[in-house]
Amino acid sequence: MSRLISPLVLALIGVMLFGNGAYIHAKAWLAQVLLQRAFDKSVATGQAVKPWSWADTWPVARIEVKRIGASAIVLEGVSGQALAFGPGHIQHTAAAGERGMAVYAAHRDTHFHFLRDVAIGDVIDVTRSDGRQFRYRADFSAVVRFDASGLDATAEDFELVLATCWPFDAVTSGPERYILHATLIGAVK
Rank of each mutant, 00 (worst) to 15 (best):
F140P: 03
F39W: 04
T183A: 14
A182P: 00
H25W: 13
E64G: 06
Q36P: 09
W29C: 06
P167G: 09
A11P: 03
A138D: 05
A28M: 09
S173R: 08
G69N: 06
R128Y: 05
P175N: 10
L180A: 11
S79P: 00
H92P: 03
E159F: 02
R128F: 07
G150H: 01
L30H: 15
N20S: 15
I68F: 10
D122F: 00
I63A: 06
L4K: 13
L12C: 15
A22I: 11
A82W: 02
I179Y: 03
I179G: 07
S42L: 09
G80M: 04
V144C: 01
D169I: 01
L8V: 15
L162D: 13
S173D: 11
A148P: 02
H181P: 05
I5Y: 12
W52V: 10
K66A: 14
K189M: 13
E64I: 05
R3L: 14
H181G: 08
S2H: 10
A28G: 07
L115M: 12
A44M: 09
D40F: 04
W58E: 10
D125L: 05
I120F: 08
Y104T: 03
M16L: 12
A48W: 00
T154N: 11
A44D: 12
T127Q: 15
P59E: 09
V49N: 09
S173K: 05
Y23C: 14
A155E: 00
R135E: 15
A119G: 05
R145V: 01
S149Q: 06
A94C: 05
S2L: 15
G69E: 04
V60P: 02
V78L: 09
L30M: 15
V161N: 04
A48L: 03
Q91C: 01
Q36I: 08
P59Y: 02
I24K: 14
H89F: 08
S2W: 14
G19N: 12
V118I: 11
R62C: 08
L35E: 06
G97P: 04
A153M: 10
V144K: 06
L115S: 07
V49W: 00
F18N: 08
V65Q: 06
P7L: 13
P7H: 13
A55G: 04
L184C: 04
F146N: 13
L12N: 13
D130E: 05
T183E: 11
A55H: 01
K189W: 11
A94R: 03
V103P: 10
A155L: 00
T127G: 05
V60I: 07
D157K: 00
R145M: 05
A155V: 00
A61Y: 08
T164G: 07
E76T: 12
A22K: 12
L75I: 08
V65F: 03
A106V: 03
E98I: 01
T127R: 14
H107M: 01
A155S: 08
